[in-house]
Every structure is written in structure tokens, then in C-alpha cells.
Write a protein that binds this DNA or RNA. Structure first.
Lengths: 242, 242
DNA sequence: CGTCGGTTATTTGTACACAAATAAGAACTC
DNA sequence: GAGTTCTTATTTGTGTACAAATAACCGACG
């Protein structure tokens, strides 16, 4: 069972009961909740109930709260006594600062501690390429979002610098929701086409072992993507005002 | 009362009783514990007792555990059921990856979202320069460590990119203990002289508004400092082996 | 004497009951 | 009828008792 399947699993209580240590149980709850937040199962502004979640997961509030507290430190949740635990909104100001940093970190991923190219890595990007082709044929928001997450993780494999991977991952999860919240059905095919192009290009660069080229391509797409985001935000703000 | 005083305060229970919200109480406990870890009040390998700390802080284990859990996520603590809560050791392998990343992030601090130069910033660096001069006259390990921390925070003021500041801070606190653990009394005057020279140079660059120059100087010192660290680690390993 | 096995003490993890804080709604007043 | 204050329901925060896990200790046995 892969990690994606774990986080997407519906019977979390079952998984938790099979976990052998407190650390494992924490990781399951953390992954599941983060995944739900990023896949908009819990859209921004959603109020989570500790009681209800603990009940669903088959644990008491104590261990659940640890997962919630780390997610709060990650900037995905906000808990307040007497109010509740709310999924944070994504704010343009904050988003643009995170994106600016991600652009630079992305370049480092292609430069620091490069992981030697092996068949496994090539195969990973190939499988993403195939998934991208299937997505192109039948655009779907959830499939798009999932591929976006998995592609991010594949890209992170290019570096062996663990602190860089950790930092990049936190920042990624802080921003990736914005796509699902802003891209409407009409824009989806266009975005899918662009994204699949990116995957193909980067997979080719990786196959050649040129990680810096891969990073440059990704940086370009991140930058262009952020610009498209800004116009989408502007558009939705105009829509709201009218 | 400044933040440094807060973290250095001995009567934490008193402070906590005056805090008005759970968030404030958390921040106090977190800052105090992080400070104690970085100032080697709790050297690497120290076992902390939740019971004892909760008792000292005048709270129950529940709110204390939140602070411990975040510190564990920061990589400063490691909790294990049946074993205890241990202050992590600093490992050379990990350290060098973090340093490599810090070198690069440091450059970003001088480049992204520069904070407009104002009198307050100049005054901040001037006051650090004066503290450095006093330290030079009377080298002291604890004063050195404190100045190192405060100088880091001053440098962070050069950028307004908050995610960058957050990330840099976490990485700084993950590495800064190494100096106190490795630099012995004999090396102290030399290290103090080098560090004070860095502060003077950077303060001058800041006064001119040339943050990128400041970042370059700092990068050079970070790099050289890391090299000195590596030889010190090698030396202490040799000492251990003999 | 060394080694293996069980026992026990200690520590974190978990469950649960209650306290504190907030917000929504009801009732009361002007 | 509008505004204000009190009440109450709901939610997270905190305290505490107990469970689970680990490691050190001790004794028996080879």
C-alpha cells in the first residue's frame, strides 16, 4: 500500500488500530488531515471538530490534538479557545511571499546534493508522464491536484539535502490548495495542458541527468503559474465586487 | 521587558501566571525551553522530565507538552514512550546539510523583499557593534552565544519576506548550539575577535544600505565558520579516539 | 562468573472530566 | 423596534488518572 493510498483511505480508524507506535499513529493522522486540507475535502474556512475527528479516527482528543497542533504550526489550521479549529484562508500577500521563496528554493533543489541518476528515478518520472497523458485525455480537478502533489514529491527526489526537502515540502503544502480553490472547470483543460507539458519537459531533463535544467524549467513554470494565479485572484475579486 | 529578558528569566511560573491567553503561555514556554537548549542549560543528551518542567512552570503536563512537541518538530528534542524526552545531539552529517542550505538562504535574506533602511535599523546594528566591543574586551562564552543569537535576529530584519525569516530562524536554532559545544576556552578569544569583525563589517554595509554586500560578508563568515567547525569536530573526534 | 528471564520503576502516551472562552440567541429595557 | 445585557450552548484548553512501553535491576540458572 503506497503512501498516497494511505492518505486517501477512508477508514482511518482501521489503519490507526494496526499502527504499532504512537509515532506511526501521529503520522497517519497528520498525513490524512493534511491531505484532506490540500484536496479541499476541508476547504478554507471549514471548522473542524476535535470531538468528531477523534471519534472518526477511533482515538481520544489527546493524540489527535498533536496532529492538529503541528498542522497549526504549518499554517494550515488555526485553533482558538471558544471558537474552534478553522482551516486557514490563503491570502494573496502571504502567498506571493511564499512563492517568491519557493522560486529560489526550487533552484537549490536542482543544485544542492544532487541525487545520482538511476533507473528508479527515470521510472518514477516516466510513470508521472503516463499519468499526465491520461489526465490530458480526461481532465479532472482531483486527479490534477493529486498529480501535482506527486510530481512535487518526485521533483524533491533530485536533491539529497534533507533540510531543503523538509522546508520545500512545508512551503509547498502551504500554497498548493490555491489551485483547486481558484481554477474553475472552464480553465481546467488549459491548466492541465500546461502542467502536462511541464512534466514532459522536466522528465526529459531528468533523463539526461541535467537537474539544473529541470529546475530552470520548473522555476519558469512556477513563475508563470503564479502570474496566472494573480490574474485569477484579481478576476474573482472583481466578480465579488460586482 | 524585552524578549531576551523573558527567555532568560528564572521565574517562568510568574510570567506564565501573568499571561492572558493560551497562545501567550505557549510562546513563553516554547521560547524559554528553546533558549535553554541553545544556551546549553540543557546540553545535548540531557533528559527532560515533563513532570518536573510542568511543576517548575506551574502548569500541568498538557500545555507543556504542546511546547515540547513543537520543539520536537523543530529537531531540538526527541520524545519516546518509556524512554524520555532527550535533547538531540548535533550530528556532523546533518549539520553540514543545514549549513549548506543556510549559506544559500542567507543570500536570499539580502536580496528578497529588502526592508527600507531607517534609523532604527542602523541603531540596532550600532548597539550590536557596541556589545561586540565590550565582548572583545572580556570574552565570555555565554555573552558570545547571546550576541550570536541577537545578531542573527538583527540580520533577519534586512528582509520583509516572512516565510524566509521563519525558515531561516528554524535552521539557525538547529545549528547554533554547536558553537558552545565545541569552542573551548582556549579558542574563545580568537572566535570572538573573528565574530566581532564580522559584526563591524556587516554593520557598515547595512549603514550604506547595501544588503547584498552584508549578505556576502555574512556568507563568507558562515562558510569559514563552518570550516573551522569541521576541524574542531575532527579534533574532538581524534581526542576521543586517543 | 556470565547470561538469560522476569520484575519493577520510570517515563511518555492516552482517555476523560472539567475549566475557560467565545459567540449566538433570548429576554429585557428604553 | 432597536439596542443591550444576560444566559446558554459549543468549543478548545487544562488537569489528572491510568495504560503502554522501555530500561535498569535482580535473581535464578547454566
Amino acid at each position: 500500500m503506497t503512501d498516497q493510498d494511505v492518505t486517501a483511505s477512508s477508514d482511518v480508524a482501521e489503519l490507526l488500530s494496526q499502527a504499532s507506535s504512537a509515532l506511526e499513529r501521529f503520522q497517519i493522522m497528520y498525513s490524512v488531515l493534511r491531505d484532506r486540507i490540500c484536496m479541499l475535502v476541508y476547504p478554507p474556512g471549514t471548522q473542524l471538530s476535535e470531538e468528531a475527528l477523534a471519534s472518526e479516527f477511533g482515538v481520544s482528543r489527546s493524540p489527535l490534538r498533536k496532529a492538529l497542533q503541528i498542522l497549526e504550526a504549518d499554517g494550515l489550521l488555526l485553533s482558538q479557545q471558544g471558537v474552534g479549529t478553522l482551516v486557514t484562508e490563503v491570502d494573496l500577500q502571504e502567498l506571493s511571499q511564499v512563492y517568491e521563496l519557493r522560486l529560489e528554493l526550487n533552484e537549490l533543489t536542482g543544485r544542492l546534493c544532487p541525487r545520482p541518476l538511476d533507473q528508479k528515478l527515470v521510472a518514477l518520472f516516466d510513470s508521472l508522464k503516463r499519468r499526465a497523458e491520461r489526465l490530458s485525455a480526461a481532465p479532472d480537478r482531483a486527479v490534477f491536484a493529486r498529480l501535482n502533489i506527486d510530481f512535487f514529491h518526485a521533483f524533491q527526489q533530485l536533491t539529497l539535502n534533507e533540510p531543503l526537502r523538509d522546508v520545500s515540502e512545508k512551503l509547498f503544502y502551504r500554497t498548493c490548495r490555491i489551485w483547486l480553490t481558484l481554477i474553475d472547470e472552464k480553465d481546467l483543460p488549459k491548466e492541465v495542458t500546461i502542467f502536462c507539458g511541464e512534466i514532459v519537459e522536466i522528465a526529459n531533463a531528468v533523463r539526461l541527468g541535467d537537474y539544473q535544467a529541470a529546475a530552470l524549467i520548473r522555476r519558469a513554470h512556477l513563475s508563470m503559474g503564479f502570474n496566472r494565479l494573480k490574474t485569477a485572484i484579481q478576476r474573482s475579486a472583481d466578480l465579488k465586487a460586482s
